[in-house]
């Protein structure tokens, strides 16, 4: 495998890891605050559809992005009201959101655009375009570092950079600010937060809200950055893979980045089956390769990566004890 092929593969890894990373960080905020969110998938899907639809109607991708975030936030609000205000079961609420998004997106897309549940292809201002970083072209001649800068680092859409910058931002927010301390505390022992005179409900809604925004970014990126339209079930389990990555990362931001890059890379491999054949000297079934990320998800969820201890108050609604 030469340097160029490697850079190409890593470049694709970055693109495919981006929606996973955004969703994974979304889950991180929510779960660190003690609200399990299995509805990442549904929120991404809803955001993908609304972003693509609005971008196609208005021709403005940023309007699409805002609308996508809005859709995701709306579902977050439903999850929040169900599981925080009414202390419902967080898993059931999440599953309901996934069903709702999967069904509604296709039905509305069909009755709106009449293209078999898709949205029209986006072009021009209707989609996110890649950004060429300064000096990318002039430096591309430099051996090794040049192509890495020009191909791998430069040339992604703005959302990719946003996603990667969200990692240090999240770390800083969680571990260096008052908000982060309280957020982590409310996921571990909400009673401690309550008796310290801080609102448990307020903190949890804030976390669920951040989760909604990040899922909105993830969904919008799928339909208007990575692809150029919304298609049925286009998230294809990314919300669940993000959850697996979150467990793999043990709810830590930097580790979430590494886990998502790994899953992204596994999604790239089936796109280049020739490379496997050439480097390993054996032909692998293409479908097997495509199944790799899902197989790894199962392995991780089965607990083969060591003990992952979730936030201790995760999944349980807060009730003041008698």
């Amino acid at each position: 495998m030469d340097l160029n092929t490697l850079i190409q593969m890593l470049d694709a890894t970055v693109r495919l890891a981006t929606p996973l990373l955004l969703a994974c960080l979304a889950g991180l905020y929510s779960e660190r605050a003690g609200i399990f969110d299995i509805g990442l998938e549904g929120k991404m899907l809803a955001a993908a559809f609304v972003a693509a639809a609005i971008a196609s109607v208005t021709g403005q991708v940023y309007l699409g992005l805002l609308a996508g975030i809005g859709a995701s936030l709306l579902l977050s609000a439903i999850h929040g009201v169900a599981s925080i205000t009414f202390r419902g079961n967080q898993l059931i609420s999440g599953v309901a959101i996934n069903f709702l998004a999967a069904g509604l997106s296709v039905v509305i897309a069909q009755s709106w655009f009449r293209q078999g549940g898709r949205t029209p292809q986006l072009s021009g201002e209707g989609r996110f375009r890649s950004i060429t970083l300064p000096f990318a072209e002039s430096l591309s001649g430099v051996p090794v570092l040049g192509p890495i800068y020009a191909e791998l680092i430069s040339g992604h859409s703005i959302l990719v950079y946003v996603a990667f910058l969200t990692v240090p931002l999240t770390w800083w927010l969680l571990f260096r600010t008052r908000f982060g301390l309280r957020l982590r505390a409310v996921g571990e022992n909400p009673a401690a937060v309550d008796t310290a005179g801080v609102s448990v409900i307020g903190l949890r809604f804030a976390a669920v809200g951040i989760c909604g925004i990040l899922c909105g970014l993830a969904g919008a990126y799928l339909a208007t950055g990575l692809q150029t339209s919304f298609t049925k079930d286009m998230t294809s389990g990314r919300g669940y893979i993000a959850l697996a990555a979150l467990i793999f990362a043990k709810w830590r931001p930097w580790h979430a980045l590494y886990a998502c890059l790994l899953f992204g890379f596994l999604q790239v491999i089936p796109l280049r089956p020739d490379l496997i054949t050439n480097t390993l000297g054996l032909r692998l079934n293409g479908q097997l390769l495509e199944a790799l990320p899902y197989i790894l998800t199962v392995v991780i969820l089965a607990g083969f990566v060591g003990k992952a201890i979730p936030p201790r108050a995760g999944g349980t609604p807060y009730v003041k004890e008698r």
Partner: peptide, 13 residues
Amino acid sequence: ENVVLGAEDSAML
């Protein structure tokens, strides 16, 4: 961290 929780002076820890 437990002592400070809820009685922080500012947004930064």
